[in-house]
Design a binder for these strands. Structure first.
Length: 256
DNA sequence: ATGGCGAGACAATCTCGA
């Protein structure tokens, strides 16, 4: 059983105690982090390696930054879909289990029609083209991350209020659908068709207590990998207590 | 409609996130 986790930690150094406790508790084979919010030299390599984990990182001062923490060493394949992208948003590795793993922090987009929205849309198009040129649908590929898009209205606590808002707009959903047409399956929806399963809740307005959230942290897989996916769950407990991230980890298991 | 909370940069308030 191989356990793959995606978690937007909202600063690795601010969340280090929680990350260490999570590694101890869940013992994941792969912990994919987004929003490290630190340059490579500020990444807490020692604290992670003391727990027996390797880190493949792509940091950036203050913003963005992604890492893949793993029990077994990985071979880093790529950093970013677009080499001209100044933001550190993607790292891809070859695992020791015969599958490749992409970890991405998709741009937020700010608001529909903004410059950042155009960047988000272009980024998603670039992601599709890059994946298409480097993998086949018949390859074992797992693509996780903070997608900053709620795939459909079941993934939104109030779809009417969020209609055509950022993360839920038809344009973003179409761009996501186009990206997934390379042959990627939402592993959560293989196991659960319900509404009200979320992975992010705003820090404000007691959103978590009221379950006012979005499901934007997603685990996709190509058919040969998806067919080996046995479970997907949100670790809601990680959103509780002192100094949580505003995202909870999403944990998938595979029979690789 | 607005702002609310949290983090980083930097040194009192900014920007940014979702």
């Amino acid at each position: 059983m191989v356990k793959v986790v995606t978690w937007n930690v909202n600063s690795i150094n601010s969340r280090l105690d929680r990350v260490k406790a999570f590694l101890d508790r869940e013992s994941p084979d792969f912990l994919c982090l987004q929003e490290l919010k630190c340059a490579d030299e500020k990444y807490p390599h020692e604290a992670i390696s003391e727990l027996g984990y390797h880190s493949a990182i792509f940091g950036q001062k203050a913003y963005n930054g992604v890492a893949i923490i793993s029990k077994k060493p990985v071979e880093t394949l790529f950093r970013n879909f677009d080499p001209k992208d100044e933001a550190s948003r993607m790292i891809a590795v070859r695992t020791a289990y015969g599958f490749d793993l992409i970890n991405a922090y998709v741009p937020n987009g700010q608001s529909v029609g903004s410059e950042k929205y155009a960047y988000k849309m272009a980024w998603l198009k670039q992601a599709k083209q890059f994946i298409q040129s480097h993998w086949k649908t018949s390859d074992k590929l797992v693509f996780v991350g903070d997608f900053n898009i709620a795939p459909d209205d079941r993934d939104v606590y109030d779809p009417v209020a969020w209609k055509e808002h950022i993360h839920c707009s038809a344009g973003e959903r179409a761009a996501l659908t186009d990206l997934l047409s390379v042959g990627l399956i939402d592993t959560h929806r293989m196991h659960d068709q319900s509404t009200g399963v979320f992975s992010w809740w705003d820090y404000r307005e007691l959103s978590f207590a009221r379950n006012k959230g979005l499901r934007i942290d997603l685990i996709y897989a190509t058919p040969p990998a998806a067919s080996l996916c046995r479970s997907v769950k949100v670790d809601r407990d990680e959103r509780r207590g002192e100094k949580p991230s505003d995202h909870a980890p999403v944990i998938a298991t595979f029979d690789f």
